[in-house]
Design a protein around this nucleic acid. Structure first.
Lengths: 227, 227
DNA sequence: GTAACCAAGATTGTTAACAATCTAGTTGCC
DNA sequence: GGCAACTAGATTGTTAACAATCTTGGTTAC
C-alpha cells in the first residue's frame, strides 16, 4: 500500500469531494505525503471512505492546483518542487503580497491595527523562546492578516494557490542560522509600514521582506550543493 | 436548448476532456456564451460529442479556473464578472506582468528584441487604419511576447488564469474614445523599456500601462452609471 | 383572483461494472 | 548470464444505469 495514514489526527470517516481534496492537500502541506509519492485511487478510497468518482474529481482538482501530477494510465503522485521553482513562487508572492500590503495600508481600520500589532508581540515571544514552530505559525499569521485586511479577493485567491505549493520549504528556511531574528525584524517593519497608512512604503517593505526570503532560499541551495 | 453553436468555425466532432474545456473556454472568451448563460451537461454532450463524464470533469476544471459557476443539483452557468472584479484582476495583472517585464529586461536576447520591436510596427499600422480588432490582437501579442521572454513559468501560469477571466472587457476598453492611440503609445514605451535592459524601468512602465487600463475601466464604469 | 400544493419532466449526482493500459515477474532462447 | 517476449496482476479510463434533487406547469382550496 503506497498510502498510509501516519497520524490519526484527522478523521478517516466518510468524505465528499472537498473532504478528500482538503485531506490530501493538508497531507502534502504537512509533509505526510512525500514528493513523488504515488497516490493510488484505491488507497484513497479506502482511507477516506469516499466513492471512487469523488476521489477522481478530487485528484483532478489537486492537479489543477499544481500540487499533484497525473499521467494517463499511470496514476497520480505528489508533485516534486525544485528549489528554482520555490524561488519563482516566492518572487511571485513578493509582488502580489506587495499589492496586498499597499491596499491594506489604504484600508486598515483602527481595530485591525491593534490586532496586527499584537502579532508583533507573538513574534518576539517566539523568537526569544527559540520556538521555531511558533515562529513559523506567527509568520504565516502576519501574511494572512495583511491579506485579509487588503480585501483584495483576486490577490487572496492567487496567494492561496501559491501558498499550497511552497509551504514545504518554509520550515527549511526557518532553520537557517540567524533567520528567525532577521525575519522577525522584517515582519515588524512590514506591520508598522502597513499601520502607517503609506501604501508605497508598505508595498516596498513587503517586497523587500520576501526578496530576502528569496536570498535565503538561494543560500540554502548553495549549502546543499556544497554537500 | 440553452446552448447553440453560433459560429460553425470550431469542430463539433468527438472531443476529449481537454477538448471540451478549451471549446467552452474559447466560447466564453469570445463572447459566444453570455455571462449567466446556463450550460446543461446534455447540451454540451451532444454539441461536442463527448461522454458525460468528460463534460463533467471539464466543467469542474472550468469552475476551478473561475470562469464557470456551479451549484449543487442546479447545474453550471457562465460566471458573470463585475467591473469591480475586472479592476481587481487588472491590478493583479499589473504587478505580475511588472515582474515579467523586469525579468524579460534582464533575459532578453538580440533576436527577441528584434521580434518585439516588430510588434511596435503592427500596433502603429492597426491604429492608423482604425482597425480595433487588429489593435486588440497586437496588444495581446505584446503582453504574451514579454511573458514568454521573461521565462518565469509561475508568473506565466498566473497570467493565463487571469487572462481568461478578464478578456471579455478588453474589447469594451478598446472602444473608449482615444483609447487606441493612448494604448499604442504606452505599449511602445513598454517595448522600448524592456529592450533597454533596465529591469526597474521595465517594471515601472508596464505597471503604469496597466494602471492606466484600470483608469479606463473606472471611466467605463462612470459612463455606465450615467445612463 | 391568489396562494399553496402536487405531479411530471428535466437535470444533476452517484455507483458499479466493463474496457484499456501499464508494471512486474517469469519463462525461454541466444 | 543476459536479453526479449509473454503473462498475470494491478491500476486507471470510460460508459451506462439508477437515485436524488430541482424546476415548471397546472390544479385546487380559500
Amino acid at each position: 500500500m503506497a498510502v498510509s495514514n501516519g497520524t490519526a489526527s484527522d478523521e478517516p470517516s466518510t468524505a465528499t469531494v472537498d473532504g478528500v481534496v482538503t485531506a490530501v492537500r493538508d497531507g502534502i502541506m504537512q509533509g505526510r505525503y512525500a514528493p513523488g509519492q504515488r497516490l493510488p485511487e484505491a488507497d484513497l478510497v479506502s482511507l477516506y471512505q469516499a466513492s471512487r468518482g469523488a476521489v477522481r474529481t478530487a485528484l483532478a482538482q489537486l492537479e489543477n492546483e499544481g500540487i499533484v501530477l497525473r499521467e494517463r494510465n499511470r496514476g497520480a503522485r505528489v508533485r516534486p518542487i525544485s528549489l528554482d521553482e520555490a524561488v519563482e513562487i516566492t518572487e511571485a508572492r513578493a509582488v502580489v503580497e506587495g499589492l496586498c500590503a499597499a491596499k491594506a495600508a489604504q484600508r486598515i481600520t483602527t481595530e485591525e491595527k491593534k490586532s496586527l500589532r499584537a502579532l508583533s508581540d507573538e513574534l518576539r515571544t517566539a523568537v526569544e523562546a527559540g520556538d521555531v514552530m511558533a515562529y513559523t505559525r506567527a509568520n504565516q499569521e502576519v501574511h494572512r492578516a495583511i491579506r485579509d485586511i487588503s480585501r483584495h479577493e483576486t490577490a487572496a485567491h492567487m496567494l492561496d494557490r501559491l501558498r499550497t505549493q511552497s509551504v514545504r520549504y518554509h520550515y527549511t528556511v526557518a532553520l537557517l542560522p540567524g533567520r528567525p531574528s532577521v525575519g522577525m525584524r522584517e515582519h515588524i517593519e512590514v506591520i508598522e509600514s502597513v499601520c502607517s497608512g503609506d501604501a508605497d512604503l508598505a508595498e516596498k517593505t513587503m517586497r523587500a521582506h520576501l526578496m530576502s526570503v528569496v536570498d535565503a532560499l538561494q543560500q540554502l541551495d548553495a549549502n546543499l550543493h556544497q554537500w
